[in-house]
Amino acid sequence: MVREPTSGGGRGVSRRGFLAVAGAGATAGLSGCLGSNPIAAVGGDPREVAIAGSSTVFPVAEAIAAAFDEERSDVTVSISQTGSGGGFSNFFCPGMTDLNNASREISEGEIEQCGDNGITPIEFTVATDALTVVVNPEADWIDCLTVDELREIWRADGAQRWSDVREEWPDEEFEFYGADTTSGTFDYFVEAVIGEDANHRSNYYATERDRTIVQGVQGNRHAIGYFGFSFYSENPDSIKAVAIDAGDGCVSPSLETAMNGEYTPLARPLFTYAAQQSLAEPEVRDFVRFFIERAATDIVSEVGYVPITEEVRDENLQRLEEAVAEVTG
């Protein structure tokens, strides 16, 4: 470390042709033994579809992209989970992504930001996220809950017994079956029902396996649980779904009420936004078309969401073709 720099030395063997940078160059070459550089060699046309945005929509996008990849292995699809808003303002509107997934509609500010950069977002509804509150089929005292009652049941330090919610209900303890805190279902339930002023209760059976919730609720007359709608729709007889009253009367969960917006606050549409300018690229067009078509199929319900109807699909497709026609002239 403290070695004297022996500058000068003598003169003698002088090799020519060594540029200074060769020092760095030669050492770089040595790392060639770690493998030749395949990156520089491959040029050409990278056929990529870049997607960012909501982590709620991510499972749908991933499932559809996986199916797309099986048909079109020449196109590389990448999906980042950045959140709806982060995806818009950091990636989509600056023109870095082709699609942005969103669990809400694009805001005015975001449309403006996109406009400033010459990006026109085209909205497509790709699924509906709905939650179903379920009880034991023998729980004949309950058919409907208000959102406030639901909050009282599920918030920390909330109701412990059915009679705490309504006096005429049994003086029996609840058994709670809910979504695991890791899940989007949990986040959504907290957002829609619990709100900011309270926490979700922590003394409940947390699971992401819908089947476990069904078994748990089936096994106890005083149990209550919630999970994604799609699983209930496949098992409507084994458990009982509770209607939800958000102030406009009781609404039972169904495909129809989830899609038309009556089943609030436990249903919300999920979107993906395409940059119109990106639709000039054939691979982006193909992917979006594929996305919309598959969004109406079982692919979506397999990941726990409600697929779009064929009408919505056709509206989407029409909007897509119009947008494509504009950019391709």
């Binding site: 050409g44 991510f58 196109v75 590389t76 699809v77």
Partner: peptide, 19 residues
């Protein structure tokens, strides 16, 4: 740096998104 959570396919340039 916003690396994608999921990528289908392998990088074919320095500007490819990678997983």
């Amino acid at each position: 740096i916003g690396a994608p959570t999921t990528v289908f396919g392998v990088p074919n340039s320095l500007f490819s998104k990678i997983s």
